[in-house]
C-alpha cells in the first residue's frame, strides 16, 4: 500500500518534470503577431485574402450533389454557418468506428466515402483544400478545444514525436518551437508552430496548403524521413498541436509568409 502510494507520487513527479518543457498556455503566441503589417492586412480583409478564392469554391462544392448517393454536404448538414460552427476548432476528433482521431480532411473524406459514396479526395487537391477552408472558416474567431479524453493516447504519441530529435540534423520540433520561438532561423522568424490558421495561404507556396503539408516541410528541413500525408503519425502530431494551442483563436483560413 505504502509502496503503491510512493510509486504514484513518483509517477506524478516524473510526469510534472516531463511536462516542464511544454509551452505554457499564458505564453501562447500566434504567428499572426509576428507577421509583417502587409501580411497581416492580407489576412484581415477577406477581399485581400487569397484563401477566400478556395472558400468560394468550397461553398459551391458544399451544395454540389456527388457520388452514388447523389447527395451534397448541404443535404445532410444544411447551412454550414450553423452546422459547421466550431468543427475545425475541435478536430482532430475521435472517430468511434475507426477508434482513432481523424483530422478535418479525414472527416470530410469519411463523409465522401460513406455518405456520398464516392472516392475520397486526395490531400492537397483543390477540392479538399476548398472544402476544408470553407468548413474551417466557420470556426474563425472561436477558441481551439481539446477536451475529449479519448484523444489522450494520440496527444501523448504526438507529444513524443514533437519532443524527440530526428533526421540528419538531429533536431526536435521542441528545439525550435518551444525553446527558440522569436529567434531567426536564417531570415525566418521561428513561430511557436501553432495549427490555428489552417488551411493557410502561404506566400512562399503561392497557394493554399494543409497543416500536414507544413509539418512535412519542417520534417524535410530537419532532413528526417517523412511521414505520408494522412498518416497516423501526422494526425497524432496535429492532435498534440491542438492540445498545445488550446484556447487560442482559430484564424482559418490564415495567411502566412
Amino acid at each position: 500500500m505504502r509502496r503503491a502510494v510512493l510509486f504514484a507520487a513518483m509517477l506524478a513527479v516524473i510526469g510534472s518534470l516531463a511536462r516542464a518543457s511544454d509551452l505554457p498556455p499564458d505564453k501562447q503566441r500566434s504567428s499572426y503577431q509576428d507577421m509583417a503589417p502587409a501580411t497581416r492586412a492580407m489576412q484581415d480583409a477577406d477581399t485581400d485574402n487569397p484563401a477566400m478564392l478556395w472558400v468560394l469554391d468550397g461553398e459551391a462544392l458544399w451544395q454540389t450533389k456527388a457520388g452514388n448517393a447523389g447527395r451534397a454536404c448541404a443535404d445532410c448538414h444544411g447551412d454550414a454557418k450553423q452546422s459547421m460552427r466550431g468543427t475545425a476548432a475541435r478536430h482532430p476528433a475521435f472517430d468511434e468506428k475507426l477508434n482513432a482521431p481523424v483530422n478535418l480532411e479525414g472527416r470530410i473524406n469519411i463523409c465522401r466515402t460513406e455518405q456520398q459514396q464516392t472516392a475520397p479526395l486526395p490531400y492537397e487537391s483543390k477540392e479538399l483544400l476548398a472544402l476544408s477552408a470553407y468548413v474551417a472558416l466557420q470556426s474563425r474567431g472561436l477558441p481551439i478545444e481539446s477536451r475529449d479524453p479519448r484523444l489522450e493516447p494520440a496527444i501523448s504519441a504526438g507529444r513524443a514525436e514533437f519532443m524527440r530529435r530526428q533526421g540528419q540534423l538531429n533536431l526536435g520540433c521542441v528545439h525550435c518551437h518551444d525553446q527558440r520561438f522569436g529567434e531567426k532561423l536564417a531570415g525566418s522568424t521561428i513561430p511557436q508552430g501553432h495549427p490555428n490558421g489552417y488551411p493557410i495561404y502561404r506566400l512562399e507556396w503561392q497557394t493554399l496548403g494543409s497543416l500536414q503539408r507544413r509539418l512535412r516541410n519542417c520534417l524535410t528541413g530537419m532532413r528526417a524521413d517523412n511521414y505520408p500525408l494522412g498518416s497516423p503519425e501526422l494526425v497524432a502530431l496535429e492532435t498534440y498541436l491542438m492540445r498545445r494551442a488550446r484556447g487560442m483563436t482559430v484564424e482559418s483560413p490564415a495567411v502566412r509568409p
Binding site: 530529435r165 530526428q166 533526421g167 540528419q168 540534423l169 538531429n170 533536431l171 524535410t220 532532413r223 524521413d225
Partner: peptide, 22 residues
C-alpha cells in the same frame, strides 16, 4: 547542443533516405 554533428552517422533516428549513412 542543437548544433548538428557534421561528421557523425550513428545515434541518429529517422534520417531521410537521401542523407542516410552520410
Amino acid at each position: 547542443t542543437i548544433m548538428p554533428a557534421y561528421y557523425r552517422i550513428d545515434h541518429l533516428v529517422r534520417v531521410a533516405p537521401a542523407f542516410r549513412g552520410k
